[in-house]
Write a protein that binds this DNA or RNA. Structure first.
Length: 357
DNA sequence: GCGGATCAC
DNA sequence: TATGGTGATCCGC
């Protein structure tokens, strides 16, 4: 809540970095209750110390070292860039609402919300015109759209239609990655090669097959990695697709102007930190401010931000991983009831727990 | 190893 | 009237 703007105002001159960071560290990084995602406090401390002692030339040398270190990281990332695969991200349009409309055609064309007065899972596109969104409390949605029709979630239905769509996905990539009931990643590199078809053609066909199998529309994005494919899905939603050319220049042009909030992994808080502290708004800003980023954030976070800035994302097909936790949560409930639920689920999967939280 | 914070869906 | 639940990751301690 006390994000200082002083670092950002340090403009381009690295010699002003130490002064402004010293203050900022004092007011923000040390005292802020809300943790700065990935900000490495020890590192900040060290950088501040190194940069505030000694002569101006020593300070400048420290800055040069930071630039050299981060640039060598950049070179390493760039060298590992893989443009050889073609990834598709598929996202069913307003999935829960679409399924409910399919099952009850009287809902067609009407603003509907799947969920209750406390929380909305999905809003139909008619409802979205009124500003109704998923993750919005139902009573607010009703105020925005008085005619809004509420439908209780029925996950059995959604699981069924999810299964139908996944049968189609399997035809294009037997190792597809199902992210959720309504989203999946497919590597269609082989499919395009075998059938001598462009990615656009393959994905047009895939989407029409999904519609034939389910009666539901979906949107898709295509890119050389999963990060880019996902971002592309948003562009022509609903019932559309967008293909990003697997060429370095096309990728870099595309990512440069992309607002950072569109990047999966950069949420509300990280967006605000990057904007208010470093005046970073689009992905190319991550590149121009890379020295500040590497000085202020952990190695893991820095590498993530740099990869994003270059439009580099995961291209390998990860193997199915084992779950790491299982739990139940209620806003108001007795601990014993929750414990019973957890015990039941553990038994269902023949699991034992090592840690109970 | 744990709790807090953040994120995605 | 009224703002969810599941699972994961990173970080500081």
């Amino acid at each position: 809540s006390k994000l200082s703007k002083e670092v950002g105002q340090g403009s381009g001159d690295p010699s002003t970095l130490s002064q402004s960071m010293e203050k900022t560290y004092d007011t923000v990084f040390l005292n802020a209750k809300a943790g700065m995602d990935g900000v490495d406090k020890k590192k900040v401390q060290k950088v501040v110390y190194e940069m505030s002692k000694g002569s101006p030339s020593t300070k400048r040398l420290s800055c040069i070292c930071i630039h050299m270190a981060v640039d060598s990281k950049l070179v390493k990332l760039e060298a590992a860039r893989d443009l050889s695969r073609t990834w598709v991200h598929v996202d069913m349009d307003a999935f829960y609402a679409a399924v409910e409309t399919l099952v009850d055609p009287s809902l067609a064309g009407k603003p509907i919300a799947v969920g209750g007065t406390s929380m909305i899972c999905t809003a139909s596109y008619e409802a979205r015109k009124y500003g109704v969104r998923s993750a919005m409390p139902g009573f607010i949605a009703r105020r925005l759209c008085p005619d809004l029709i509420f439908v209780k979630p029925d996950f059995k239905k959604y699981t069924h239609f999810c299964g139908l769509s996944r049968e189609v996905f399997r035809e294009y990539d037997p190792k597809f990655i199902g992210v959720s009931l309504d989203e999946a990643y497919l590597d269609i590199t082989e499919m395009c090669r075998l059938r001598i078809m462009s990615a656009a053609e393959v994905v047009e066909e895939l989407r029409s097959k999904v519609f034939a199998a389910t009666g539901l529309s979906c949107s898709a994005g295509v890119g050389p990695n999963r990060l880019l494919a996902k971002v592309c899905t948003d562009i022509n939603k609903p019932d559309g697709q967008y293909v990003l050319e697997s060429k370095r220049s096309a990728v870099v042009d595309f990512i440069s102007s992309l607002p950072i909030r569109k990047v999966p992994g950069i949420g509300k808080v990280t967006e605000r930190i990057l904007r208010e502290v470093l005046d970073i708004n689009v992905c190319s800003d991550l590149l121009t401010k890379r020295a500040y980023i590497s000085a202020l954030f952990s190695q893991i976070s820095t590498e993530f931000f740099l990869s994003v800035a270059l439009g580099i994302g995961a291209t390998e097909t990860l193997q199915h991983e084992q779950r790491k936790s299982l739990g139940h949560e209620r806003t108001f409930s007795a601990l014993e009831e929750l414990a019973e639920l957890v015990v039941g689920d553990l038994a269902k999967e023949s699991l034992q727990a090592r840690t109970v939280t």
